[in-house]
């Protein structure tokens, strides 16, 4: 199924609205569409949405398609921010164009490459794909968590995703920031790594929150 860009955008909006306001969250008016628009016709034709009075409803087929679209978009954001280091303000625009270039199946490769990230850079959850559930990692990953690194491996910190903002702040204040080169010294009983000329020890929980682009194996 080849959807137009507009149709994909509509799916995204519908999905986001339904997450926030429930199934009846969208009307043609609220999403700024007309029933005669090409994109709406297209979606109805593929039985991805149906219209009930003024409400626009996602069908079950539409729901899963929307999830895929969202997944592509958010994975694209992650790729742009973490690996390509595109500046934050530009990400949104680029990601919108980029996601349409990612075709079916390709997003799973990106997902594996990035180590199955759970949230987009904005903190919104990324829907899981087949690859996340099965956890088969045929493609070797670029981004891994510190806890997945072996002793003596090196890498560059891609991003840090902590539970609380206070911890992020503390780690950053200690110099654990994106872009810093690190060298893993040991993994047990605590994780110890070298960053600049300092060694830092962290526990497993924190080691799972630091995402690293491996540069040596």
């Amino acid at each position: 199924m080849e959807l137009s860009e507009d149709a994909e955008e509509i799916l995204e909006v519908l999905w986001t609205n339904s997450k926030r306001d429930g199934d009846l969250g969208s009307t043609l008016e609220s999403i700024g569409q007309d029933r005669n628009d090409e994109a709406i016709k297209e979606l109805i034709e593929y039985t991805l949405i149906k219209l009930s009075q003024n409400h626009v409803l996602l069908t079950s087929k539409g729901l899963s398609e929307a999830k895929t679209v969202i997944r592509r978009h958010r994975l694209a954001e992650r790729l742009l921010v973490d690996v390509l280091e595109i500046e934050d303000v530009l990400v949104e625009d680029v990601a919108c164009k980029f996601e349409h270039l990612i075709r079916e199946g390709v997003e799973d490769n990106i997902c594996i490459l990035l180590g199955h990230p759970r949230v987009c850079p904005h903190g919104s959850p990324i829907p899981k794909g087949k690859c996340c559930l099965k956890r088969y990692d045929k493609a070797s990953r670029i981004v891994v968590t510190l806890s997945q690194m072996e002793s003596n491996q090196e890498g560059r910190i891609a991003y840090i995703h902590t539970k609380g903002s206070e911890r992020l702040q503390k780690l950053m204040a200690m110099g654990i920031t994106p872009g810093m080169q690190i060298h893993v010294i040991q993994r047990f009983l605590s994780y110890v790594f070298q960053i600049g000329h300092t060694q830092i020890a962290v526990d497993e929980e924190i080691a799972k929150e630091i995402f690293i682009i491996r540069t040596s194996s």
Binding site: E77, D88, V91, E92, M172, T177, P178, G179
Partner: peptide
């Protein structure tokens, strides 16, 4: 709203740079 990361993160990263 203009950034995808927390402002704290943006500001600290700038200082780090």
């Amino acid at each position: 709203q203009k950034y995808s990361h927390s402002l704290n993160y943006i500001i600290n990263r700038k200082r780090q740079w």
